[in-house]
Each structure stands twice: as structure tokens, then as C-alpha cells.
């Protein structure tokens, strides 16, 4: 598989107050994100996960090291539009990323900026709205939609650029459970059906359950990197970084410490119940 985004010894510092040392939000991050993968980036507030996301389409530029988007260097100003077209970004607050007061006009915003011909814009708008399941809302006013619907419009607005990758920077943080589920199933479908690479930044552990890969950021560095099963098995390590594990893993961890033979990598409810049931049906014979 080819590489979608690559960071090499990526460093970033926010401008510091007078006479203070700049604080590095990213302290040397080396990552390679494969095309078509679904990657979840976890970390507590201030771990650098959002900063990392914003370097992926040149909203923030590296202070040291490099970021490559399909081989394009984000430091090269001439490539800016091309990079942003390839990596779309969805932000936290749904209200602050919708530009127009009609849904179709908003989705058309990016293709209009890119100079796409009118008929092609029409096609892209309709297709993008279909992809996020909002076809019935073409002429609606965005401010009357629910949070989850607004976020899906924002995703459609990004999809209309036909990007290879979508980065969601805590895009589910302000949503209620229903809205969060809407957004999650939408991006999973985009990943599955259109092969769009997804980088999901979140602090909701449950959202990582179905990811291909989980990256845990801590203090500006990659602290853990692996499948959800691998990462969540390290219960104590996650807790020490101010994160929690899903209750399923917490339960399995406790049972294991109580001496019950259960694996730690059963994250979903069904897998967890299977693992416990298996351990308990074997238990009486021992």
C-alpha cells in the first residue's frame, strides 16, 4: 500500500509569551499513514493530537522536520491548494465551518474555489450529499439542522473536493450520541466504499473500536501505535496518560487481575461477552 501522509521528525511550537521558552506541542513525530486506512488518534487535551492534525493539510507548518502529503512537501507554498484539495479537514464546531446559508451552496464552496466547471460542481454537490445521506436537504438552511446533520454537511463540503484523505479534528466532540453515531457511520462508509483515508482525532475511546490503527499521542510524541486490540490491552499505560479504556477492556483487565483467564483484546460488547462466557464455561471443570 502506498503512503497518504508521512511526517518526518515533525516539530511544532506555538508562539510563546515574551521572555518565555516556546512550548513544543510536537516533539519529533514520525508517522506513515497508509492510503485507504482508518486511523484514530487519541490523547488527552494538550497532548498534541490536534496540532498534529492541523499539520496534515498545511494549516500549521512544521517548525522542524517535514510533512508529506502523497509525496508533496507542505512547506512548499506553491503546492498549498493541491495539498488542501487532497486532505480535507473537518473541525469541532459545526457552526463555525459552514459558510453559506443554503446547504447546496455550502457544499459547492470548495469546488467553486477550485474553479470546477458549473455542471461538474452540480454533480459533485449531489454526489457528496448522497454520500453523507443528506440528499433530501439540498435547499435547507444549515442553521436549522441538528448538530450531527451539520457535521455531515461539513463532511460533504470536504468530500466535494474529491480528496484522498479526510482529517476529522475532534469533529464528534460537540455532538450528542445520536449525532456522533451519524458522523461515525458516515465516515466509516466513506472509508469502506470510496477508499478515502480517514484520520479521526478524538478523545472518545469507543470511537477507536473499529479503527484499523490507533495512535496515542502524549506530550507531543507518539506514545503508542497499533491495532485497537494492541493499544487497549495496555490498560495501565493508557490510564497513566490520562486516558481511559472502554469499560469492556476495564472489566477484562480486572477479571484477569482476579485470576480469570480472559484475553484483553475483546473490545466490543459482543467480543467481551464471548470471551467471558468462554472463560466461565471452562472454569467449573478446572
Amino acid at each position: 500500500m502506498s503512503t497518504m501522509i508521512e511526517t518526518r521528525d515533525l516539530r511544532f511550537a506555538y508562539p510563546a509569551e515574551e521572555q518565555e521558552q516556546p512550548v513544543y506541542a510536537l516533539k519529533g513525530v514520525d508517522l506513515r499513514i497508509e492510503k485507504g486506512s482508518f486511523v484514530v488518534v487519541l490523547g488527552h487535551n494538550g497532548s498534541g493530537k490536534s496540532t498534529l492534525a492541523k499539520t496534515m493539510n498545511a494549516v500549521l507548518l512544521p517548525a522542524g522536520g517535514k510533512v508529506y502529503v502523497e509525496g508533496l512537501d507542505t512547506l512548499d507554498e506553491r503546492l498549498l491548494l493541491e495539498i488542501r484539495q487532497r486532505v480535507g479537514m473537518v473541525f469541532q464546531n459545526p457552526d463555525n465551518q459552514i459558510v453559506a446559508n443554503v446547504v447546496e451552496e455550502d457544499v459547492a464552496f470548495a469546488p467553486e474555489n477550485l474553479g470546477v466547471p458549473t455542471e461538474e460542481i452540480r454533480r459533485r454537490v449531489d454526489e457528496a450529499l448522497k454520500a453523507v445521506g443528506m440528499s433530501g436537504f439540498v435547499t435547507h438552511a444549515p442553521h436549522l439542522l441538528s448538530g450531527g446533520q451539520k457535521q455531515r454537511i461539513a463532511i460533504a463540503g470536504v468530500i466535494a473536493m474529491e480528496p484522498a484523505c479526510v482529517v476529522l479534528d475532534e469533529a464528534t466532540a460537540m455532538l450528542d450520541p445520536v449525532g456522533r453515531q451519524e458522523v461515525l457511520s458516515t465516515i466509516h462508509r466513506l472509508n469502506r466504499e470510496k477508499g478515502i483515508t480517514v484520520v479521526l482525532i478524538t478523545h472518545h475511546m469507543n470511537e477507536a473500536e473499529e479503527a484499523d490503527r490507533v495512535i496515542v499521542m502524549d506530550a507531543g510524541q507518539v506514545a503508542m501505535d497499533g491495532t485497537p486490540q494492541e493499544v487497549f490491552s495496555c490498560v495501565d499505560r493508557l490510564c497513566s496518560m490520562g486516558l481511559t479504556v472502554p469499560d469492556t477492556v476495564d472489566l477484562l483487565d480486572r477479571l484477569q487481575k482476579d485470576g480469570v483467564q480472559v484475553p484483553l483484546d475483546a473490545i466490543t460488547v459482543e467480543a467481551c461477552a464471548d470471551a467471558i462466557a468462554a472463560a466461565f464455561s471452562a472454569a467449573p471443570e478446572n
Partner: peptide, 25 residues
Amino acid sequence: RRADELATAMECRCYHGGEGRTKLH
């Protein structure tokens, strides 16, 4: 705050002024 976030979001959607812009309608 909204203005700031909106500006970033617009840039992420390749907004670069009126030059070379096309229209849906």
C-alpha cells in the same frame, strides 16, 4: 472566535479570494 475558526475552515476548503472562482448557480 467564530470568525477565526471560519477563516481556517474556509482556507482548508481552498478559498483564495475571488480569482478563478466558478459558481454552482
